[in-house]
Amino acid sequence: MSEQQYQKYYVPAQSPWPFVGAVALFLIAVGAGNFVIETTKGKEGFGGWILLAGLVVLFYMLIGWFKNQIDESMSGMHSEQLGRSYRQGMSWFIFSEVMFFAAFFGALFYARVIAVPWLGGASNNAMTAEVLWPGFEAIWPLVKTPDGTTTTAMGWFGLPLANTIILLTSSVTAHFAHVALEENKRGRLKLMLGLTILLGLCFLGLQVEEYVHAYREMGLTLQSGVYGNTFFMLTGFHGLHVTLGTLLLIIMFFRVLKGHFSPQNQFAFQAASWYWHFVDVVWVLLFVFVYIL
C-alpha cells in the first residue's frame, strides 16, 4: 500500500452511547433478574419496571448510536478499510449466534441420543431403568416423561411446512433486494425489501398461531419434559431472532426510502441481509431436526 492510496482510518471521538448502553444492559439485567424471581415466586417488586426502563434506555441508545453512525457513513467518513472492519465484525457476531444455537441443538441431540435412551435402560443402565423408572418407554419425540407428564408431538406438515416455505422465499427476496441495490434499481429494491419484511411478519404471525395451538389444543408446553423444552427454546430463540431481523430490515426499508445506500456504500443493508440469511439457515436446521426427524 503506497502512501497516496492510504486513507486515514476513522477513529471516532468520544461517544456517550456505549456508556448509555452499559447502563441500559445493567437495568435490563437487574430488572429481568428480579422480574423472573417476582413472577415465578409470587413476590412483590419493581423488576418489571426496571426491565422496561432498561429497554427504553436501550432503544434511546440504539437510536442515538445508529444516527451517529448513519451521519458518519452518509458524510463519507468511512474508508474501505473501516467497511471491512464492520463486515468482519458482523460475520464474527453471526458466528457467535451460531454457537449460541449450537448449545441448544447440542442439548436436543444429547437428550435424544443419550439421555432418553439411557433412562430407558440403554448402554449399561438396564437395572437403573428397572429400579428408578419401570415402564418408561424411550421414544422420540418423548411424549411421556419418566415422571408421567404426557404431551403430543408437533408434526411437520401444514403450518411448519408453510413457515419453511415462507422463510425460504423471504431469503430469496432478500437476495433479489440486494441484487437490485447492486444494480441501482431502486424500485425493485423497495419492492423486494418490502416483500421480505412482509414474509417475515407472516412467519412470526404463524409462529404465534402455532404456539397458541400447541398450548391450547395439543398440551405441548415449555413444561412438557425435554421434548417441549427443546422445542420451545429452539423455536422461541429462533423467533426472537426473526423478530430482531425483521426490525433491522424495517430500519433498512426506511433508510432506502430516504435514499440511503449505493452499490459502494451499503454495509448496514448487507449486515441486515446476512443476518436474515443466518436466521433462515437456522430455521432449516430446526425444521429438519425439531420437526421432521
Binding site: Y110, A115, W118, L132, W133, L222, Q223, G225, Y227, M233
Partner: peptide
C-alpha cells in the same frame, strides 16, 4: 429453575450430566 423445564432433570427426560 424458574420456568419448569427439565433439561437437567431426569424426571422430565433430561439429564444432570448433560
Amino acid at each position: 429453575k424458574f420456568f419448569g423445564t427439565s433439561f437437567f432433570d431426569a424426571a422430565g427426560g433430561g439429564d444432570p450430566v448433560m
